[in-house]
Write a protein that binds this DNA or RNA. Structure first.
Lengths: 391, 391
DNA sequence: TTGAATCATCAAGTAAGTTGAGTTAATTGC
DNA sequence: GCAATTAACTCAACTTACTTGATGATTCAA
């Protein structure tokens, strides 16, 4: 049952689709770019690029944006993404609610909604997801033709593993492929990932990881997850469960505990509860931090070390451009952690002449999971597909 | 200076090259396979596959191997790799010596040699590598046209990092790209990787990882490295230094030490030395193990725990098909470790219905680095290239 | 023995990229 | 100010490599 990817052959049709997505991706990465420049960078002739650009123009995915002043010669016409050329729907399934959002091509949210999740069986969840899709399409008034697909984010790990029962995973999908299931139920292209992977893609598409090729996103959900991007693609593992960093044992006060017992949203809530504070919302945490709540500050002091440990593991295992913190914590708390953590000197990431900090705060805020769901779809629209296709 | 990959456009020429490599890879993976089956699996027409097969036949890369008995219809002609259709040269640069080998298309060694390495400056090393290449070509009597390329393995990490000076890395390449340097010096296609990555590819091409898509190879060099394969490709990190697992701190006897201080070839040698045994060769270790040397057995007992810890980290971070042990340890010692290590229950890899053990011993023996150097080239010959090209 | 199923080849057709000549539009240098 | 230079862009013919559909080959099953 391992996820497997298979390389497919190239024919004219697939080559065209590949080239279209490649050109689109170059336009996105550059912001504005001309045809000749794309041709130089891609190894295609300017004529081929010209034809593809004219396709993309008539599909409304890109728009002409003036000419660029150059040193000599005819100034190249610049093209940029047309944000309203396509939309992605992102749906996040949380234990208590379903969140849905619509992102435009640039990854900017155009609408969003929240529905409490009553039933937790397969049919109930499916129905809720289908309803959320219809509702958000209606709310944003999207023509069906502009919907690129639906991204769905749910807690991992997927399938039966040794971690089953430790988190908030959806056991209703233990024996059903969620991707196949929702593709069927929604009759649309569907991408399914866990929250940490989605957060990483959100940062790649519209966050601080724009321009990065290889990075890691340490994600604070209820537990602690890790989204890994290598050469612009998700590192998913053989069964889609890579990045379960929260379950790595660390020693805390001489005892071996899972990392997420020391470093996660639940960990801080538990610590605060034991000090008599019942704080469960992000706003509550932000207020407590603003008020310099003593229990919270103690926890933050204690959290710096396991965080440093986690980052050392990530850096030495992945050699990323940077590690990004994301998820269910107020920005102020992330900033505090980033300021107080002592990064290891013995790390492959401790290199002279770095262009960015080793540790960054994500830009997607606390809705990063839902935004990430949409970002998965956007990302797929920009990813050329000859070579490997998941099956 | 980060390694960057760039997606290129598809044209007829690149599509053909992609398809050739894809077909070749399917032939390799299947052992024996017919044209129609390749067509079904690849999404190409049988006619297209037929044309490519006839190309590969006339290049001598594959051979006809009879017809397969089927239930009905004309029995398909089967094709398999022709081992003598191409050769890869693998060169491993160790601190004290240079090893070279020639592998045929199936990854079987055809010749090998060892040269002591006198000079350690850039020119000296370069000269030795160039000489090793000529010598091994002469020894194996290879026609130039059949040489697919040269794979070079050297200790990492590459470039200036926070780990500089802790291992046996080649500091002469701190400010030169080894790939560019050797491509120039050898005027052949060159692939350069560290020993752990090469070991992983060796297992993928001709070892126990044949058929795996996503796995990890824990490599005992002087230190401890990790080679990661995800969807058939190396996970290299932003700067080619992913997998430096040996530098992750672990607690041993209450002190934080790098993992490789507890678990590596140097670690066992040091432990034996402190007990009065001067054992530095693999044969020596194997003898000591056969004799149940008390100091060695103590070390092995103590090593089980850090090994278990390392595997837990790898499994939860990568969700691999399996973890493979490879490198500079006698098989008997690996087997002992595999038998004695207690794998964590709380792991994404602890799943019901597994097809393989979670922990396997590599098949390449102690020359795995050198074999891996060749395997890098073999692997590249089978990897379709539209999509991403390193630059 | 005939029909179904599958593999295989041929020849014509087609999609998509390439090539090379010619046009457009800007800067540079006299 | 004007010609030369440079670079972007377009058109039309050409090329490559895959697809399609017809035909034949080979085997098993009824």
């Amino acid at each position: 049952m391992s996820i497997s990817t298979e390389t497919v052959g190239a024919n004219a049709e697939r080559a065209r689709s590949h080239n279209r997505q490649m050109v689109l991706d170059r336009v996105r990465q550059a912001g504005q770019i001309g045809r000749a420049e794309i041709a130089r960078g891609s190894g295609l002739s300017t004529q081929a690029v010209s034809n593809i650009i004219s396709d993309l123009l008539s599909d409304g995915l890109i728009s002409e944006q003036g000419r660029k002043a150059t040193t000599r010669g005819q100034p190249p016409v610049q093209y940029g993404l047309n944000p309203v050329g396509g939309y992605a729907i992102g749906i996040e399934i949380r234990p208590d609610a379903i969140f849905a959002t619509v992102l435009d091509l640039c990854g900017t949210p155009a609408a969003s909604l929240r529905r409490t999740l009553a039933a937790h069986d397969l049919d109930g969840v499916t129905e809720a997801v289908v309803a959320a899709k219809s509702a958000i399409i209606e709310e944003a008034d999207l023509p069906a033709s502009k919907v690129l697909g639906v991204g769905i984010v749910m807690p991992g790990p997927f399938g039966r593993t040794g971690l089953s029962g430790t988190g908030s995973e959806l056991s209703i999908f233990h024996d059903v492929s969620p991707t196949d299931w929702f593709t069927e139920a929604l009759s649309t292209p569907v991408v399914v990932e866990n929250d940490a992977n989605a957060a990483a893609v959100a940062e790649l598409v519209a966050g601080v990881a724009r321009g990065f090729d290889t990075f890691a996103c340490l994600y604070f959900g209820n537990g602690l997850g890790l989204g890994l991007i290598q050469e612009g693609r998700l590192v998913r593992g053989a069964f889609g469960n890579a990045g379960e960093i929260g379950h790595i044992p660390v020693t805390s006060n001489g005892r071996a505990v899972p990392l997420e017992a020391a470093l996660s949203r639940l960990a801080v809530q538990k610590h605060l509860a034991s000090a008599g504070f019942d704080i469960t919302s992000s706003d509550g945490l932000a207020e407590a931090y603003a008020a310099r709540n003593a229990a919270l500050m103690t926890w933050l002091d204690a959290a710096a070390e396991p965080l440093s440990h986690a980052i050392t593991i990530i850096e030495n295992m992945f050699d990323p451009d940077a590690v990004i913190l994301g998820g269910a914590m107020p920005d102020a708390i992330f900033d505090h952690l980033i300021g107080s953590v002592k990064l290891a000197e013995r790390s492959v990431s401790n290199r002279p002449g770095r262009m960015t900090d080793r540790l960054l705060r994500g830009a997607s805020g606390r809705m990063t999971g839902t935004l990430g769901a949409g970002a998965l779809v956007i990302n797929r629209a920009f990813t050329p597909r000859i070579a490997a296709v998941a099956r």
